[in-house]
């Protein structure tokens, strides 16, 4: 595992230039910084429409220090596939990374994502999941958790959520993992491990959004950490046929060691309307998800 002393060499390097257009406390910038640290800022990035295409600021300047291609919503994996092949023809062997939000991955761009995954294109796909369409004003997406407030679900979302990472395993890709912005070392390790493999690699990054989830700006990391500690977000890794639960999530296999889910829910305004029965439903969902993941670790070993 990478240590913070190893990262000290980036202490004065601006991997993302300061002065971006992101909201204060934005988790996407954290994720992008860790991504740049993991790959030593040597990669090309493809970004579909979303918060991440607004963050770099106004032309002719950008906050990103790596080559970035801004593409229409549904085309990012297709563009990245072509970019990868073009780079290989020119003799460049750096990774091509798609940095997409949940709307561009789970809903609008799902067809091209699924297509490039089944063709096993040589790209790294990072789904930065802030659980709604935050850039256009907090509309519910396919990965918004049930009961959560959004502007299109004012009394709580009635549908369930898509489990994107498990869907990607079923595409028979070599590498799928979940990560959280509160555990940067875990995320950096996973990106580095993914970069050492060829084929389609998928990382699902949990990114709590302060304005969209309605919590104070300074709680971004705290909320992300609580999501793991309460068991709402499970960190695991599927590497070429073997599924393991990652070290930050290992203690929470045991139900008794998880923090109460209310601690996670009460910090967020989007869950402020929940009744006791709703909380029980969410708890049951969490237990079900853990059962599924633990059973999958026994199947894929």
């Amino acid at each position: 595992m990478v240590t913070i002393n190893e990262l000290h060499r980036y202490g004065r390097t601006k991997l993302i230039m300061p002065g971006t257009s992101a909201c204060p406390g934005c988790p996407l910038q954290l994720g992008m910084r860790y991504l740049a640290m993991a790959l030593d800022a040597r990669f090309a990035m493809v970004i579909p429409a979303g918060c991440s295409s607004v963050i770099p600021g106004a032309a002719p300047y950008t906050a990103f220090t790596v080559p970035v291609m801004h593409v229409p919503f549904a085309s990012s994996p297709a563009v990245a596939s072509g970019l990868r092949r073009a780079l290989r023809i020119r003799g460049v062997d750096g990774p091509v990374v798609v940095w997409a939000g949940d709307g561009a991955s789970a809903d609008i761009g799902f067809a091209s994502l699924s297509g490039s995954a089944y063709r096993n294109e040589d790209i790294i796909y990072i789904l930065a999941d802030n659980e709604a369409y935050m850039n256009t004003g907090i509309q519910a997406s396919g990965t918004t958790p049930p009961k959560a407030w959004t502007t299109t679900s004012p009394r709580g979302k009635t549908e369930g959520r898509k489990d994107m990472s498990l869907i990607m395993i079923m595409h028979n890709v070599p590498y799928v993992a979940t990560a959280s912005i509160a555990y940067p070392m875990d995320f950096i390790d996973k990106v580095r491990r993914a970069a050492s493999i060829r084929g389609f690699r998928f990382i699902h990054l949990h990114a709590p959004c302060p304005p969209g989830w309605k919590f104070p700006d300074n709680y971004t990391v705290r909320v992300a950490r609580l999501a793991v500690e309460t068991g709402m977000w499970i960190l695991w890794e599927y590497n070429q046929g073997k599924l393991t639960i990652s070290s930050p999530s290992v203690p929470y296999k045991d139900k008794g060691r998880r923090k109460p889910i209310e601690e996670y829910l009460k910090l967020q305004g989007r869950f402020s309307h929940l009744t006791k029965e709703d909380v029980e439903v969410i708890k049951a969902n969490v237990d079900k998800q853990w059962d599924l993941i633990i059973r999958l670790t026994e199947i894929y070993r």
């Binding site: 230039m17 600021g57 300047y61 950008t62």
Partner: peptide, 14 residues
């Protein structure tokens, strides 16, 4: 060439 270059403060003096 429709290219932007890295620069601190692309979003203004935040």
């Amino acid at each position: 060439y429709i290219l932007s270059r890295p620069m601190a403060g692309a979003g203004g003096k935040t």
